[in-house]
Design a protein around this nucleic acid. Sequence first.
RNA 1: UACCCCGUGGUGUAAUUGGCAACACAGCUGGUUUUGGUCCAGCCAUUCUAGGUUCAAGUCCUAGCGGGGUAGCCA
Length: 568
Amino acid sequence: MTDTSTSNANESPRPSKHFIEQAIDADLAAGKIKGVHTRFPPEPNGYLHIGHAKSICLNFGLAQAYGGTCNLRFDDTNPSKEETEYVESIQDDVRWLGFQWDSLHYASDYFDQLYQWAEKLVLDGLAYVCDLDAEQTRAYRGTLTEPGKNSPHRDRSPQENLELLRQMKTGEFPDGSHTLRAKIDMASPNLNLRDPVMYRIMRAHHHRTGDAWCIYPMYDWAHGQSDSIEGITYSICTLEFENHRPLYDWYCQSLEIHHPRQIEFARLNMTYTVMSKRKLLQLVKENHVNGWDDPRMPTISGLRRRGYTPESIRGFVTDVGVAKFNSTIDVVRLENAVREHLNRVAERRMVVMDPIKLTITNWPAGEVEMVDAINNPEDESAGVRQIPFSGSLLISQDDFQEDAPRKFFRLKKGGAVRLRSGYIIDCHDVVKDDDGNVIEILCTYDPETKSGQDNSGRKVKGTIHWVSAQQAVPVTVRNYDRLFAVENPDRVEEGKTFLDHLNPDSLSVTQAFAEPEIKSATAGDRFQFERLGYYVVDADSSESELVVNRIVPLRDSWGKMVAKGKAN
RNA sequence: UACCCCGUGGUGUAAUUGGCAACACAGCUGGUUUUGGUCCAGCCAUUCUAGGUUCAAGUCCUAGCGGGGUAGCCA
């Protein structure tokens, strides 16, 4: 149970405890438990997403906070959906988030024990073999408002049930022809208690047990007992299992085994995001994204590739809290969490996205001067680097306007601006092409205004970033935006699907020019490109091509003003 | 329509468990700044409604309203 990374500001402990911690405190005080043992129990049928991160942080975090233990257990009771690829990715993701399980388990480890317990329930008259098929079972179950009716096979003798169960196990019956069901109450208002199925016959190859079994336990029949076997004290799960708790309790009580306490919390929902595994799988399978780790995916692997840090995800998760209210978190909270972290730790670099040529007419021809640039104004220990400055520069087209609005503090004709870490320059002219577009900006520099040693007293409103044209390094930039264009992609009109809400501009690839220092960067390095945003070097980079992903843009109050028409 | 759960600023989460509704994010104002970033300050609430208990109710009681979950041999 180790948190391997350093703490960060928004990971500091909350001032008050959430309802699960309060429940634990009460149990501890009442002597009901002696320690805290939790587990994270994913089904290996897909990649983990940010919602799972909440569960991971909760379960591992509780164990940490109370000096207890937390297991990782794969809930692999349905071989038709589960794959080894997923069990590997899940382990990678949990570790990457900064957690280490105390022990690793599989529900399939308990198949033998589960089966023995099933025979016990049969012998105790608490379970029976039912010959109804799936459709008949549904019909007998009744509805939300009407009670069900008893299966015609409900009153078989324990001995007969035992024989039939053994035949089920040894493969005497075809798939779907029989089930083992708990004998509870077909009239219960809680449908989970209307003689729930414990075992179904399913000839499928299991990723761990192979073809040893042709009957597989249902979730309810496997989950609580798995918790029990591992000595779990708190079985923490999401709200939709609330109605299953009476059944969870019934199994533990009927079996007279260690009885963990199930506590439910609200799963994480986020704006501009879909979270269902089915939909994420569809995005991957239909190639709307480039795989599970596409940087636009809300998967842990997607966020990792996007450049999110584990610290920022943990910070986000503690920040949004744990409760039973079914809420939707604004995705800007996630974006803000990574900004907050990266602002403190990411070194700055200058990169020009949409370049226009800027010539300094009074610069000594051919001369290149190395200027100092601060690596991180938030962290003096990050030091300084050197950047080549010359008479031929590239700046962003956004940073120049001939006819600028009143509040435009960047470069305009007849105006002045500071070149970050360089000099103040004055724009005296522009060069245009035949269509009248500005293709080159002509400036003079003020030698008295060198950054760090400026005694001129000159003040200018704006500072812009730049690179020296000769030394500039081309970089392929993948500017990612939200995958969906609307706040709630799950809400769709008749005849449409969530796919209709995909944001067509969620990725734009562009060629940019970076200061030469960028050449020393390797995959996984994160930077703040000054005035633009945070970026991470992607694994697709090679000797010949540097590829970076935009993690999140910087806040842009100028852009906001322009959008609101307040720039004048 | 049955059962279960949940309702506190725009969004989330708190409130010493009956004692001045707080924090964060967003938004809006302004300040600082060699990143229009960061940072700093200010503003932003009839606690779903109606009754009741109480010196005192977000918290307790009653009724209503609203939202979510549940009818897989999925998890």
